[in-house]
Each structure stands twice: as structure tokens, then as C-alpha cells.
Simulated assay, not measured.
Amino acid sequence: MLSFGTAGCNLGCKFCQNWDISTSREIDHLADRATPDAIAQAALRTGCDSVAFTYNDPTIFAEYAIDIAAACRERGVKSVAVSAGYISPQPRAELYGAVDAANIDLKGFSDDFYRRITGARLQTVLDTLSFIRHETDCWLEITTLLIPGHNDSDAEIKRMANWIVTELGPDVPHHFTAFHPDHRMQDVPPTPPATLSKARQIALDAGERFVYTGNVHDARGGTTWCPGCGAGLIVRDWHRVREYRLTADGCCPDCGRAVPGRFAERLGTFDGHRIPVRIASRRGSHPVGRRQP
């Protein structure tokens, strides 16, 4: 996957872990100037099957992202939006109708948390999740960063999981990831791994079928388990894929059960390294994109 971003954001999350990018107002912080075609070509040149709009929210460069998604699709490259999902209805339809997959941050499950910590509103994000799931062909996943003392209570996680199962269905993957002190929340401790494991279990008990832990070493919490026979199908630890057993059509090799998702026809090479990628020439020497596993 070729990942890239621009600068700025439409939220003001106090815990932002890409704050140097998301709070930037200087265009000179951008390393490259690249056309949609150049980005699609860079993906092909570096052996990437997909391009991800990430590091900052693609909502603020939606027109550019849509053009890139079109250029990628012409060349058989997929596009992925990594977003907070805080977007109005018309651009929402245009952006998520253009990309192949989306990972939406559901940052908490109370409007108070959203107002105080992010400057946004919960309902808009819930509307985006429902729209992507029911009105598009875009593959949807959800990520929740658990912040100790702010959005990690058992009750809030249970409400969130119940809403996901009821409104989106049990097969939308849900990632609980670990917070580390950053930006304006450096007085908050890191998320204990036990908190992630407990949240995962609460979500599983509520009926979610594919729940993961992230930003920690937890092979069990990072593995995709067959919903039929319980076999480990994609074994992950941190950012590494240790084992990949799905058949070419996305089924369990042991019981034949299909696993919901979008899977490549070939396996590829998995490791945990990020490789800087030059896309176009401009002032400065820093890369705009990175090739990820």
C-alpha cells in the first residue's frame, strides 16, 4: 500500500498522533506536488496494489482524493480513505462512492467526548458509517483509539458495540488501538494492553465477529479467526502478518466458510517496514508517500 497525505485537518483532536501534519498551515511542509496520475503511477512502480489517503483527513482534499481514486481505478489500483468521517452529505456521497475501502475513526461514543476532545459531533460520524455501509460498495472498517479515562469505560464500549451490530451488522471489522501521550494530552498515560483485550471481549460478547487490538503485540487480538470453525486465518502481530491461510476466493481452507472482506488474488510480501517513496520533484527532500505492508 502506498500511503500519502497533505496538511491540515477539519478536526482538532487533542490527542492527535499526527499533529505536526494535521495542524500545519504552511504549504511548504508539503514535500511533493503530484498529479493524480503521478500517484497512481508511483503505486504501480513500487509494486503497490492500493493507495491510502491517510496521515491527515482526506475530507479536506476530497476533490483531489476523488481524482486520484479515478486515476488509480483506471490502472487497476485500489484506493482507501482513512478518515474521521466528519463530512457533509453531498461530499460524503461523492468521496465514498469513489473509493474502494474506508477505515473510519469512531473516536468515542458520546457527544460530550466528541465536543470536548475533537471539536466535532458524534452523529455526523454515525451518519457517515451508516451511509458507507448501506449506500455504497465501499468496504468499511472502524478504528477506535482508547484513551484512558476518556472513552474506555465498559459501558461506553458496550453501547458502541451494540450500535455497530444493530446499525451496521456484525461483520464490519472493528479495531481497538492503543493511545500514547501526544500533542495536548501528554499528561494521559498510555493505554494498557489489558484495556484493549477487555474492549475486544466486550465487543465480541455484543455480537461483533471481527474485533482486533492494535498498536500492541497481541497475536490473538490481531488474528482473523474463521467464523465457522475458529481456525486462525490471518495471523498478525503488531504490523506484521505472520501467517496467511485464506484461499484465493477468501475462504477458510479447513471448513470452506467465506470470510467477509476484500482479498487480493495474490499474497505479496509482508513485513513491518515503511519505505519512503518519491512521487514528484519539489523544494525539500522529504517524501510525501510511504509504502506500507
Rank of each mutant, 00 (worst) to 15 (best):
A199T: 02
R200I: 00
R200G: 00
R200P: 00
R200N: 00
L204N: 08
D205K: 04
A206R: 07
R209Y: 05
R209K: 15
G214M: 04
A219K: 07
G222E: 04
G222N: 08
T223G: 09
W225L: 15
W225S: 08
G228H: 05
G228D: 10
G228V: 08
G230Q: 05
G230A: 10
A231G: 10
A231P: 02
A231H: 09
G232P: 14
L233P: 12
I234H: 08
V235L: 13
R236N: 10
R236D: 06
R236C: 07
D237K: 09
D237F: 01
D237H: 03
W238P: 01
W238Q: 12
R240D: 12
V241I: 13
R242F: 08
R242L: 15
Y244N: 10
R245H: 08
L246V: 12
T247V: 01
T247E: 06
T247D: 03
A248R: 15
D249H: 07
G250P: 04
C251M: 12
C252F: 02
C252W: 00
P253D: 12
P253T: 11
C255Q: 06
C255S: 08
C255V: 05
G256E: 05
R257H: 06
R257L: 01
V259M: 09
P260Y: 02
G261Q: 08
G261H: 06
R262Y: 01
R262M: 11
A264L: 10
E265Q: 12
E265R: 14
E265W: 09
L267A: 14
G268T: 07
T269R: 13
F270Q: 11
D271W: 11
D271P: 03
H273S: 15
I275Q: 14
I275K: 12
I275M: 13
